[in-house]
């Protein structure tokens, strides 16, 4: 295990990983001008990847909060060149830019240099409507990064459930009523692992929380951009408006999502799994600690907390690879 971990880190020794918060660059490429809510962690995701990628970057943003609340005409926060793309076009937008840049550089029409190509898409855009397009992007040979920023709802259209919303959450599409306490009956899609497992050529897939562990997300962006080929990051983004809590608790909720194990924090580097916060070896906090701080779960009965806890327990205790591979009972292939 230690040997493998050493190998994983070794692969990125030239990526200039941050060692502690004091080594983080000060220059920002996503600055003032946006009007996201106070405490918006998705905005931190934007700020983080822009900071790491730096000026030689092109970005597309799929429709969603990070488009609508971020880029009012004439007050753009983007220092790097940025373009809107359609809700389901995240993957294709990155492919188009990367292919265009590659062709122009090869033909000598623009100077050869490394230009980072990044798309960000929300949980609805990437996880539901744009899933096929992201799959397509991950099959290409291009250097590109897809960041799925996951605030667990269609936040921009007033907080509707997406395929990545936590079980049981109240959203405008899944209100708790007198007959049906729980309307959100879909279990959260395992998006990052689905993409990693489905696209064996992809060299780097990771999940992250923008604020916990400190610098971890930034370093994952560095690794994704250094890995080569198409890469994918999935971040869990506490959203005060959609999750219904005071903005001051965003970082605490992010940390709890990781420490309760409801959100598995890991990297898959060239097919090798590395848990960032390995809850097989650490104590897992009760999921209730995370859920009860959010108004979207205020309708929960004790049995609802128990149900979510049982699913999270199963994930960490029974899955072949917790958070990644929901195969149970060992990987031995049955022979006739």
């Amino acid at each position: 295990m230690t040997e493998q971990r050493a190998r994983n880190d070794d692969e990125f020794k030239d990526a200039g990983l941050y060692k502690g918060v004091h080594s983080v660059d000060l220059e920002e490429f996503y600055t003032s001008g946006h009007r996201t809510c106070q405490g918006c962690e998705s905005a931190l995701v934007m700020r983080g990847f822009a900071k790491v990628a730096g000026s030689r970057t092109v970005v597309t943003g799929a429709t969603g909060c990070m488009y609508v609340a971020n880029t009012s005409y004439m007050t753009t926060p983007w220092i790097v060149p940025w373009m809107h793309t359609q809700l389901a076009a995240g993957g294709a937008s990155a492919v188009g830019m990367a292919a265009g840049i590659k062709a122009l550089q090869r033909k000598g029409k623009i100077p050869k240099e490394k230009i980072n190509v990044i798309n960000f898409s929300g949980d609805l855009g990437a996880g539901d409507e744009g899933l096929g397009g992201i799959s397509g992007a991950l099959q290409t040979p291009y250097d590109l990064l897809i960041v799925i920023y996951d605030n667990e709802s269609a936040a921009n259209t007033d907080i509707q459930a997406s395929g990545l919303t936590t079980w049981g959450a109240q959203t405008t599409f899944t209100p708790s009523g007198s007959k049906e306490r729980i309307m959100q009956k879909r279990w959260k899609k395992n998006i990052a692992a689905m993409m990693a497992i489905g696209h064996p050529n992809v060299k780097y897939v990771a999940t992250a929380c923008a604020t916990f562990p400190a610098t971890d997300y930034l370093n994952k962006v560095k690794k994704a951009l250094a890995a080569g080929g198409p890469t994918l990051l999935h971040t869990i983004d506490p959203c005060p408006k959609g999750w219904d809590y005071h903005p001051r608790y965003s970082n605490i909720l992010g940390e709890l999502a990781v420490k309760t194990g409801i959100f598995a924090d890991y990297e898959i580097i060239n097919g090798r799994v590395k848990y960032t916060y390995d809850l097989r070896k650490r104590e897992r906090l009760p999921v209730k600690k995370y859920l009860e701080k959010q108004g979207r779960f205020s309708h929960f009965a004790e049995e609802d907390y128990d149900y979510v806890q049982s699913m999270v327990d199963e994930m960490w205790e029974e899955w072949e690879l917790p958070g990644i591979l929901p195969i149970k009972g060992g990987l031995s292939v049955e022979r006739e």
Binding site: V58, T60, M83, T85, A89, A92, S93, A94, V95, G96, M97, A99, G100, I101, A103, L104, K109, I110
Partner: peptide
């Protein structure tokens, strides 16, 4: 569309 936007 996006290829066109980068000048291709």
């Amino acid at each position: 569309k996006h290829a066109s936007s980068v000048g291709a």
